[in-house]
Design a protein around this nucleic acid. Structure first.
Ligand code: MN
Ligand code: MN
Ligand code: ZN
Ligand code: ZN
Lengths: 153, 153
DNA sequence: GACATATTGAAAATCTTTTTCATTAATAAT
DNA sequence: ATTATTAATGAAAAAGATTTTCAATATGTC
């Protein structure tokens, strides 16, 4: 099958090539999910991805979304992000490195972008322990500006 | 109700006092869950906690485990730890607070040494966001040396 | 175009967690 | 100790998220 989008996204192209290289078929459902993920600038839940991707492939089933997410995760083109409410979100690997800053009072959650210096922290630990560190999760807890004032008052 | 365990654990005592202070009842089901959590030296899933706590309170329902976990989390006596497979584990705050290195295959948990440079990481974020960062949780996930070999083989 | 089969979607199954609600038991008052 | 109050409990049902099953379909190849 040919690409389903006339206007081509270089990120999408790259993944499509990778899929083909590995012998996977370039189906319309897959392409629709991929397109959504690669044009998004944040984390999306499977349900959201499903809704958006249906605009490109109206017959798309949620099951296929899950299957595609799992495949793209394996290939490390997207990454799964933990959510407080139990389920998961997915984002392009470049974006998925966000960390959380949580206010212990109002429970506000701020995402802050990935830290490049994270590896200066992790590398020595990997070396010492012999672990192959594949992922990390950093969560900061404290008081947001608003709640700091509430406490002072 | 009086305490259900003749041999008393100081950690359990402390939480019981706190519960009483806040007007909660010291029920047998609650005490059994608490006991399990405070005598454990690692993370436990609700199902595991349920199984263990039943030895102290045979009628204990899984629902009550969830309710107690949520209460103790609110009170910050235990902390919820994210798991790769979607569900959550819980551990005493002291245990859950440190930095952990978790093997995604054998689930081994190693506590890893010295992160003095944590503040070089956190300070800029605090400055940018205006948050007062009081606590942090860092979890590294990967493969332990043993499980790396298993994969290679 | 025909073929082989990887992929799909619907439905059912699983699994974790939450809600509902009638019953039970902890605490405080008598 | 007995009783009254009502927070807390457990069973069952519901809610969600994700996975499995399987017959039908669409893709890449010849
Ligand atoms: Mn990260
Ligand atoms: Mn999680
Ligand atoms: Zn706040
Ligand atoms: Zn291991």
């Amino acid at each position: 099958m040919k690409k389903i989008f006339n206007m081509s996204n270089p990120k999408v192209e790259r993944v499509l090539a990778d899929l083909k290289r590995l012998g996977y078929r370039l189906t319309r459902p897959r392409q629709s999910v991929l397109q959504v993920l690669m044009e998004a600038d944040g984390c999306l839940r499977p349900e959201e991805i499903h809704a958006r991707a249906r605009r490109y492939c109206s017959t798309l089933g949620l099951v296929t979304v899950y299957r595609t997410l799992s495949l793209l995760s394996e290939m490390d083109h997207i990454r799964r992000v933990h959510r407080e409410d139990g389920c998961h979100s997915y984002a392009r690997t470049e974006l998925a490195h966000g960390h959380h800053l949580i206010c212990r009072d109002c429970h506000q959650v701020i995402e802050f972008p990935g830290l490049d210096n994270m590896s200066t922290l992790i590398d020595p630990i990997a070396r010492e322990t012999g672990f192959l560190v594949e992922d990390h999760m950093l969560e900061l807890v404290g008081l947001c500006p608003v709640c700091q004032e509430k406490v002072e008052a």
